[in-house]
Nucleic acid binder design. Structure first.
Lengths: 269, 269
DNA sequence: GACAGGTGTATCGAAAGACGATACCAAAGT
DNA sequence: ACTTTGGTATCGTCTTTCGATACACCTGTC
């Protein structure tokens, strides 16, 4: 779970400016900011911690937490020390998944793909510089926290990310890469711009992309892009396997065709 | 997905009272209410729809949506007609899962159970009258929307719900049953108080509970309770199978022991 | 081609209500 | 007993939110 800390959460420029935006509601942004404080946390947070980490005054935090708690979006930590996010958040997770046409469209194909491959498959959607996992169908053996929904990974060093980039113009790719802070997750993470661009070009030719151990040790991932109705790329499908069972080449030759077929089904809509 | 509409979303008494609560922040509650409008929706909502359904003025909705959108919690619908929940919500989903000690504790055991049974297993947590699915490890074949994270089901007519109820006092059970609005999901849904209480008593004796086709046609589910450190029940584990592959009795005799073992591992902490 | 219906955007003044400082209480650790 | 830290409560000022109203735009219809 260490890696989680490494992902830039695409935190909007900090909700503080609001520079003369007459439609902007501070109170709401602050409440969301309070909830977002947990992004960096590894355990429950006390009021004071929330206040100091978010830069919001203690009283305000108190009232925001009070309100969020009343609505079920925050809970007291079980040991009565600090607070954690509340279960009510999951209701909105479901809404997001249910009402997202891409997810609705992809899910059946993803289940097929999971059946045909026997490996972990997932769908992630783009949020600026990152991919956020929206659907994850685990393989039999493994299931870490890194495989939970909501986890996110950068575009530049993931199979799906590069598959997605390969469907954008070079200018867009350059912009994204320039803005990404390329901190290696593992010794194998590619951070050199030239190398990354080469991978993107390869992906553009092949229709899929590969990343081996760039995020997690011992893991090989194949990714294909998912497009919207205007055939703009908006996410990616991953097939993920373990290098203890596969060597990279046979993994690719086994699953690339399946992944491409799946992508075909999804994108020809 | 029809069933989704049927679950009472435990909507807090409507955030309108705020009766003299000096800590209550209206703006925040209203924003959450706007997001909650989607609970009843089956597609994107326009500003006017949100306004009318939530009872909030159009201008206010406009500003709330503006703010939420700016932060990524709402998005324009892909066809440019109305809005949908935003991907940023998933960040909080992950926080919820990561920071919830129960989930952290249960996940490894759940993976084992998934491996040993080959069926769908999941963990759901209680929110008053309902169980909210927090972790779902799908079986190979199926994956409907009903099996997504965040979906919720009533306590009274589910295996896990009854297993949970069986760990509460009779008074608490009566209270919960009385407050549940017991609308049948299928012809097989038990709604009679006596019958439900009998099932709960059985669960108390067996240590597990069964529900067959009470929520979904053709589905049999076995549930055991999950307890916190004070051995109060807080959730349940489900093993779910299809009646086209199992008859109820063999399903139970196969999986009850495994479920009990898993529950033992989890609850003896 | 004008019109009607609906969606999203912009503006503004009044007054509601959110803000932070401060003080208080309880529990846990020293 | 004393200090520290977490959570709660109170209050007056002035920032901010609220809803009414009006505007711009697109779609489809007559």
């Amino acid at each position: 779970m260490r890696e989680v800390d490494r992902v830039e959460y695409a935190v909007r420029p900090v909700p503080d400016p609001a520079e003369e935006d007459p439609l902007f509601i501070q109170a709401v942004a602050r409440a969301l900011q309070v909830l977002s404080t947990f992004h960096g946390a590894s355990n429950a947070l006390t009021l004071n911690e929330i206040a100091s980490r978010s830069g919001i005054g203690k009283s305000t935090v108190q009232r925001i937490v009070h309100t969020l708690r009343q609505q079920g979006y925050m809970e007291r930590a079980p040991d009565d020390r600090g607070y954690v996010p509340g279960i009510r958040l999951l209701d909105h997770t479901l809404d997001y998944l249910r009402l997202n046409p891409v997810i609705v469209r992809v899910l059946p194909t993803l289940v097929e793909l999971r059946r045909d491959t026997g490996e972990r498959v997932d769908l992630s959607l783009r949020d600026d510089l990152r991919l956020v996992y929206a659907l994850r169908l685990q393989s039999k053996r493994e299931s870490y926290f890194a495989t939970l929904i909501g986890n996110s990974v950068p575009l530049y060093c993931t199979a799906g990310g590069r598959a997605l980039l390969s469907q954008l113009s070079d200018d867009e790719v350059d912009d994204i890469l320039a803005r990404s802070n390329r901190q290696p997750f593992t010794p194998r993470t590619l951070t050199d711009l030239k190398e990354i661009r080469a991978k993107v070009v390869m992906a553009r030719e092949n229709g899929y992309a590969i990343a081996a151990e760039e995020v997690l040790q011992g893991e090989v991932v194949l990714g294909v892009a998912v497009k919207d109705n205007d055939s703009r790329p908006i996410g990616a499908i991953h097939i993920g396997g373990s290098l203890s069972e596969w060597d990279k080449d046979s993994f690719v030759s086994n699953f690339a065709p399946l992944a491409m077929t799946a992508a075909g089904k999804i994108n020809r809509a």
